[in-house]
Amino acid sequence: MAKASTGPMSVQAADRVDPIRRAKSVYGAVIRNAFLDMLAYRLRYFTGIITYLLFVSVHYFIWTAVFAARESNATINGFTLPEMVTYVSIGWIARSLYFSNIDYEINELVRSGQVSVYLLRPVNFHLLLVAQAAGETLFRLLFFTVPISGVILWLFPVELPASLGHFAWFLAATVMSFLILAEVNFITGLCAFWFKSIDGVMRAKYFLVQILSGLLLPLSFFPGWLQTVVELLPFKTISYLPLQLYLGKVPLDEAPTVLFEQLCWWVALGMLSYFVWRRAVRVLTLQGG
């Protein structure tokens, strides 16, 4: 802890601060700053709204075409057409909330050498980046998720959540999705400490998450062997499982199990993050920035 300093500029060295209160204050301020930071770029999100709308529309037309040849209440791999449309629409709306840029952020910091500025401060790099991503998500909630939801719900026949309880669990699960994806992105970004360019790694991760999370296609559409693989990976907890909650395909009394599975993955990935970060710092402090 700081020794008493005598500079006339100081009045006294800082008191010992309760670590939890300090964390709240520091990372709360980071969230706030990230929010303000995004405000400078709110126009950028108008193009994002069009992109999302395009994605959802394409899926909508594909699924109506697929179901057109069948009876009105036919199911494919357990999904009816209205469920399918809901799955896609709500899936993309949720994505606008759990999505984060942490990997790109780290890559930029490492490439520009700015990362050493973070090591020069008594601050947790990992928490700082997650807090920053949370601030951005809060921003998107207001300026992106709300308008995009309005447009999508108005244009497409999206079903309401199975029940209020299901909706509450779905919201909680989406918060966990954010935390889990944040860890995945953090670990992906840390690769920049070892490789000259991680553009390929980031792109691969992007598509892997889109497919294996079930964002593009419900996991029940996957071939059997792939379903087995996906069962063993964390990605399904990002999109597929929360959507199952929304649609009521998971009974309410099993909802805590879904959250628990997410929690386990979050903890496991968090530990991996910590481990990789320690190695990354070693690389940096042995080889220079």
Partner: peptide
Amino acid sequence: FRLLSKIYDVRQVD
């Protein structure tokens, strides 16, 4: 500046 002062536990008066 405000964020930095929080990171370094600088008291408001200081």
